[in-house]
Design a protein around this nucleic acid. Structure first.
Lengths: 101, 101
DNA sequence: CAGTAATTTCGATCTTTTTCGAACTTTACA
DNA sequence: TGTAAAGTTCGAAAAAGATCGAAATTACTG
């Protein structure tokens, strides 16, 4: 469907990650993904009250900030959090997000 | 000089903090403050290449996000990071910032 | 192959954020 | 008391970000 590009985490700055996580909608997405042990979720499996286009935009931002990994599966795009890499590059970050109500 | 107001940390959301830390200039400020063991710094002791008004604005944002505490001392305003409270409310956050180059 | 479902792209609008210069306030101190 | 130093406030301009509807794309399904 689309060629998603995923930055290498050492090219992602702290401020870029913070910026990506400064939107409640995006934090919700990450939290939903973190709640799914190892499973991936399709974009539309995460309930958000924004339009399709906006949703797509938020996934873009998260992807470009190195936070999520997306791959195509048919007409859907499955996303997951780049846990291992993030824990290495920004230790404690994910815990911060998952512990937040 | 001015009555600074400092929010209680349980009223500060994760996204608000992230938002405040999504600017390189502000992260520099926090890093400079963290580098000073327990000491406070006056705004103008932190070198930044932005105008006075902009600097003042950044300190505002950090203060409103609950990240720094500011008190007046003569004509200067001394700031420090709200370490203890932040470590309690957002464990791991400050480490993330101080470990970043 | 037509239809549908999932997502992206485009273009536009609206809001927020960043930034600055200039004027102002407060305090220190010579 | 007058001058300087440190910050703040204001108003404006520019940049960045969020949001949406509509049209386009892609791939599955009958």
């Amino acid at each position: 469907m689309k060629a998603y590009s995923h930055p290498s985490l050492d090219k992602v700055s702290l401020t870029a990650v913070m910026q990506a996580l400064s939107d409640p909608c995006r934090v919700s997405i990450v939290q939903a993904l973190l709640a799914e042990e190892e499973r991936e979720l399709a974009c539309n499996e995460i309930s958000l009250d924004v339009a399709k286009a906006t949703r797509s935009h938020h996934f873009d931002v998260l992807r470009e900030a190195g936070i999520i990994f997306t791959r195509c599966e048919g007409t859907r795009c499955m996303s997951s959090v780049r846990r291992k890499e993030l824990n290495k590059r920004f230790p404690g970050l994910l815990k911060l997000i998952s512990h937040e109500p």
